[in-house]
Write a protein that binds this DNA or RNA. Sequence first.
RNA 1: GGGGAGAUUCCAGAGCGGCCAAAUGGGGCAGACUGUAAAUCUGUUGUCUUACGACUUCGCAGGUUCGAAUCCUGCUCUCCCCA
Length: 404
Amino acid sequence: MAFLPVKEQLEIIKRGTVEIVPEEELVLKLEKSFKLNTPLRIKLGCDPTRPDLHLGHSVILRKMRQFQDLGHHCILIIGDFTGMIGDPSGANKTRPSLTKEDVRENGKTYFEQASKILDPQKTEIVYNADWLGNMKFEDVIRLASKFTVARMIERDDFTKRYESNEPISLHEFLYPLAQGQDSVHLRSDVELGGSDQKFNLLVGRQLQREDGQDPQVCLMMPLLVGTDGTHKMSKSYDNYIGLDEDANNMYGKSLSIPDQLIYDYFELVTDVPLEELPVLKQKAETDPRNAKHDLALAITELYYGKEAAIKAREHFEQTVIKKEIPDDIPEFSFAAGEQIRLIQLITSIKFAPSNGESRRLIQQGGVSIDGETVSDINAEISIDAETSFVLKVGKRKFGKITGK
RNA sequence: GGGGAGAUUCCAGAGCGGCCAAAUGGGGCAGACUGUAAAUCUGUUGUCUUACGACUUCGCAGGUUCGAAUCCUGCUCUCCCCA
């Protein structure tokens, strides 16, 4: 296939990037690729320990997709080797070491979810245990000798953990080396990563250089700030919008981001054309309400299509703005003749994790039946064949209770 | 190898023999308000119980005591200083 002119490719590639190190080398690589009509080898590593992808992951995956669309060769590394050992970074808890099967399984799940963004046909999947697992201790020592401790601990997250007296295990120093070794093995031209990966990506450059290769270009994407507006999007902060979230949730959660993030989201997680971005930036400042709805729609549309996205918008307006009952709510049937305490009913359909919690919800006015707030903790419900009412618990848990 | 500090409820962090299901902050949840599932304010935040109360929880295992998160012994883990 024919490649786009280098200048046009660059424009697409640079969208949203934090840093490209070094950009001149990327230009050279693109020029060479164009001349020889050979695709660049783009590398992206993933951690298969938690295969629940969210919009934060999508930032980098989308960048990968852009490379695919430009005709380059994309390689997704499933980090099964590191996953088996259990990367303890960022935590002082030992993570459970996964078995080989677990990791392969997770890797599969990861790829399935990533396929919502990547073109699976054009993605090469590799497992790094295939080469890292064969290294001898001697090889590891030789690799380790290429880095000094001072260089390692100057890495930002190590420095922070060191200063706050948090433990750093020795093997964590080996992770960047392992990742760099991946680049050597795959002879990558470009490695993608979050801006927190800079150090690791740079290690790849050094190791490739020592191996006599043309070092990879490191392309860093910003870390997407989560719905709380402060931390990077991640499952552990519970500020994420999952890729397999249903359309309604995706829409609603997208609306809950703080206003100042609207533009970033447009740039990083939607497909709005480059030339429209400045307009949207303007709109995000002058008309945040509508800009945010546009954003929510754009995000939802990307994963569920236009029709579903519009439905999600309607659902949101109905339930949140007009505070009406949505059309499609789950139904829970109880045997006719049954007498059940409301508290237990709420717990039994998992609208609350414990009876204590249900009780609290009622006490706080968070429970209503057909729009009437229930304040009696001891309320009992008699079910008969005719029973049918809508139970609302908290802001957005609706259920239709019926008798059978 | 030697010396010191520490492990508390989702997180951070008080408590140091009964008044401790355990201060305070963060987070979560609910209510009010709002363009919003944002911000703000208020309430709430182990389990079971209508309630009285009962039960489980303060690294792990034992022990002292009428009674332990708090005292003792051993173990595990972490941090700091020295070598």
